[in-house]
């Protein structure tokens, strides 16, 4: 009885504490589990959506760092002075594509759609 009371009490203390409670320092992904659903919800809200986007950082000449040594130094940077003017942001809301869903086992190679491949021999 005492043991079970003790266990319940300590677990209760842990689980109700805002310090160590689940999620207090949550670094979990909330990326769209269902992009189609998210896209539809956003569209209903009047939000322009762009799905399946590849991000390419806009690298300013000289932005690269050489960290090859203990005392490596930044390179270049002459053009960076002009790089902190106001920037443009597109109106579309970009959302990530669904999580990858690639089968582990090799899949049969798809036959080409012959009826739409007029030049195939």
């Amino acid at each position: 009885m005492l043991k079970s009371t003790l266990t319940a009490l300590t677990l209760s203390a842990l689980l109700t504490s805002p310090v160590l409670a689940q999620g207090s320092f949550e670094n979990a992904s909330n990326a769209s589990g269902n992009s189609a659903e998210a896209s539809a919800e956003l569209a209903l809200s009047g939000v322009q959506v762009a799905l399946g986007v590849v991000a390419v950082p806009i690298v300013i000449v000289g932005a690269g760092l050489d960290l090859s040594g203990d005392a490596a130094s930044a390179t270049g940077g002459a053009l960076w002075d002009a790089a902190n003017a106001p920037l443009e942001v597109s109106q579309e809301t970009v959302i990530a594509q669904p999580a990858p869903n690639v089968p582990q086992t090799p899949q049969p190679t798809r036959e080409p759609a012959r009826e739409t491949c007029g030049d195939c021999q």
């Binding site: 986007v53 806009i58 597109s90």
Partner: peptide, 9 residues
């Protein structure tokens, strides 16, 4: 957050 070119399909 990194300012980027976002390429659409």
């Amino acid at each position: 957050w990194v300012y980027s070119d976002l390429k659409t399909p």
